[in-house]
Amino acid sequence: MEDNRILEQEIDRYLDGSMTREEKQAFDRRLANDAELRKEVDLQQAIIKAVRKEQLERIIKREENVIRKRNIRKIVISFGSLAIAASLVGFFYMGYMNNCENLYGRYYQSYTISEIPSRGDEKLTFTKSDSIFFNALQNLESGQNKPAIRLLEELNSSSTEMLAASGDAIKWYLSLAYLKNGQKKKAKILLHNLAGNNLSEYKSKAMALLKEL
């Protein structure tokens, strides 16, 4: 047994490279002539490799887990960032819209005419443009902002005669329609126009609204 133990230690020293050059050369010569010794060395080397392989596999497995978790975290973070960004955009959009709608609600008043216009004794009938104006307001009140805007824009750009509403009234309601639809810039342009007109009946309202905008 002692001989075998010494041999095994020799093999260990041969395999871990701790033999002197002379010792190694002598051992190589023995190996070349002793098939049994060659088998012992091969087997011991294979056992050592297997022990190391087991440990390397443990390290690799641990590292692969880290990589996998990192990749999952990347996906989650990307998805999370997108979700947060979307939420923020949604949040600001909702806030923006709430602000616009709120202002519209506070400044919008149903348009009324106290009496049917007349020319001398002659009672005048409403024009097509008047009908369009009322239709536009009806659309606006029922939440159909875009059709309302389209009709009011049409009126604002035409110069056809109207009995029911002045050009400033069209501008005022169009600015409110823009506001309700979230189109602040367009609303502001019209409001500045009204605010700059000293003769406009909507001057003070326009100035107040602009202040709030």
């Binding site: 294979a46 297997a50 022990v51 087991e54």
Partner: peptide, 9 residues
């Protein structure tokens, strides 16, 4: 090699 690996494991 596989047999040796399993024996060590």
């Amino acid at each position: 090699d596989r047999i040796i690996q399993i024996a060590v494991y």
